[in-house]
Write a protein that binds this DNA or RNA. Structure first.
Lengths: 342, 342
DNA sequence: GAACTCACCACAATCGATTGCACACGTACG
DNA sequence: CGTACGTGTGCAATCGATTGTGGTGAGTTC
């Protein structure tokens, strides 16, 4: 229990025979020029010998910065996100920053509370991967000048940088693939329309269908309440109940597609024999499903990495106009899609 | 950019007409008795009106505590861990604490660096879910009196509380299940023996096999270098190369079992027809695999929640002797196991 | 009515690092 | 030889909250 007091700046200064202020300047590359060359050398040496580690808390208190960024995700248990987290960290860490990950579990109130907590801990910026299309709190934060970048979402009329996969292209590729197989009645198992991604993908689907000269039948559109398997299953049941005789389903994301699988199994409907299914995101483990899911691959790691890079840009130059980055996606055809029966 | 200065304790004190010290005591339930009842009421009221939020940084600097605990996991992308994280948070948050999640990616050096960083940020305790059986750094931390609890692992001869699934029971159940199906040559696709879990499960396997009167044939034991699909696949290939004619494989965890699946597919071996496979952990999505994986279910959420509770106990009473909690597991039989052919 | 409690609150130090300012010393220049 | 300038350091304030110590007042007691 006799915890060895960690060495402080003061200890370094004392044993180097200088004032703490001088030691501080010597240790900081940006201010090192302000002290004599050999003094600096001496301080550096002593700091190393003593194993000095600056106290980030004290530093943050004084500088109001923390070398920490908040990373807000809606659901850590969704395998889609961990690779993004990795991508973020891969850029942050070499730059000496750390990510503080919070999981909102899709609850805007939690999100707000968590972000507030992060801010009071002086995070230097925020990477927000939760997907609500509208969120007054984010708007307020932006107005206050908090550096942030959105992942996977955009907030309407908000001039905040954002990196996301190219939803439109992905959905279009999925629809074309199904059309190419000969399907003519495609259903959409859409994500929640209050989420930016849900809305975008649904819009893209309807456009793609209409562009192909097919009817935009509302009976072929279902919306899941959450991005989860259960919600996907519920929405799929609705779809089935309308008896619209579709032969293919485009799901808003892979989790929804899994819910869809469940319902097909429970109704004894063969996939892809009777109904083809396409997912979105290419989250891990999909290739091992039964049947392996055809889906749209998004570059998870790159999404995270680019978001982090963008955040650095924002922090460096707050006045910078927001740019949005759309990352290319590609269809991965596996076993859940096939020509329609008949 | 004109960020509204957050209200400080001092602002509260000023508008309440008291000294900051008094305000501080009024705000803190533990010291509230030291101030007059109506003064306290007034301060509380003002704090609320002004929307005062204490600055955790300043507080930590002064008190050397942060209401934050470090949660160290080896691989966030392994679906096994997010549910544990949730469990931890479910206990931490109601108590006003936060978890700082770090992903070591299985690298002991990273682990050390991350923990050091956490400590300098004054975390109040550590929940360590990485699995190395031996780690001098942890030993040192413990000697320093850092409250910590281990998840999924135990460090030999280290008197640290630890919560983990009952590996022995799980493996025993798996082996019995296979024996019950009529298998007599069982192979083990073990996890890295340098990890606590890997060693424990391997030991349990050998005991169970011997107890059943079967030979403990070294040719039927393979060890994966990492807890990953690739390593699992490599080890499985070794196993196959020995031509030991086994009809069932017990994998150290589900990821290893997935690697095993890959190799079986690549050799055109039918599972469960020719070879049965059992996993461990029951991580999410397994029921959707092809074939659905028979595995040992561990109560992920409970593991996390209990770990957090134990940490609180440790923090409250540092001298408390370490208890270890073994959580019960149960076999989930799905489709990857069947009687041996012939 | 003097002395003594006790409740309540203010003062000031502190946590560890950063930073504006001022001072000392040396050199160069008029 | 005195003024101006510049470099290298030290001093002290500061970030925002917590806490040990001390002091003032009211209320008790003899």
């Amino acid at each position: 229990m006799l915890r060895p007091r960690p060495v402080r700046l003061r200890d370094v200064a004392d044993t180097a025979g200088v004032h703490p202020a001088t030691a501080s300047r010597a240790l900081n590359p940006a201010t090192r020029a302000q002290v004599g060359a050999d003094t600096a050398r001496r301080v550096l040496r002593v700091a190393k010998d003593l194993g000095y580690r600056p106290n980030p808390i004290a530093r943050s208190l004084r500088t109001a910065r923390s070398h920490t960024v908040g990373l807000i995700v809606p659901d850590l248990a969704n395998p889609y996100f961990p690779p993004i987290v990795r991508g973020v960290e891969s850029v942050l860490e070499p730059a000496g920053h750390h990510a503080w990950i919070v999981d909102t579990r899709g609850d805007p109130e939690r999100e707000r509370a968590q972000i507030e907590s992060l801010r009071s801990r002086q995070v230097d910026g925020l990477i927000v991967a939760t997907a609500l299309r509208e969120h007054p709190y984010l708007r307020a934060l932006h107005a206050e000048g908090v550096p942030m970048v959105l992942v996977n979402r955009s907030v309407e009329g908000l001039d905040v940088p954002c990196v996301s996969p190219d939803d439109t292209s992905g959905i279009t590729q999925a629809v074309r693939h199904l059309l190419g197989l000969g399907h003519t009645r495609l259903a959409l198992l859409g994500g929640p329309s209050r989420t930016s991604t849900g809305a975008a993908r649904t819009r893209a689907f309807r456009h793609a269908v209409r562009d192909a000269g097919l009817a935009d039948d509302p009976a072929l559109l279902a919306e899941a309440a959450e991005w989860s398997e259960e919600s996907g299953a519920r929405a799929m049941r609705q779809l089935l109940d309308t008896r619209s005789e579709f032969t293919a389903v485009v799901a808003g994301n892979d989790l929804l597609a899994l819910g869809c699988y469940d319902v097909l199994a429970e109704h004894g409907i063969d996939c892809p024999g009777a109904i083809s299914v396409v997912g979105f995101n290419d989250m891990p483990f999909l290739s091992r499903l039964r049947p392996a899911l055809t889906t749209v691959r998004v570059p998870h790691h790159a999404v995270g990495a680019e978001a982090a890079r963008m955040l650095f840009d924002c922090m460096a130059e707050p006045a910078r106009p927001a740019r949005s980055l759309l990352l290319p996606v590609s269809l991965v055809v596996r076993e859940s899609t096939a020509p329609p029966r008949g």
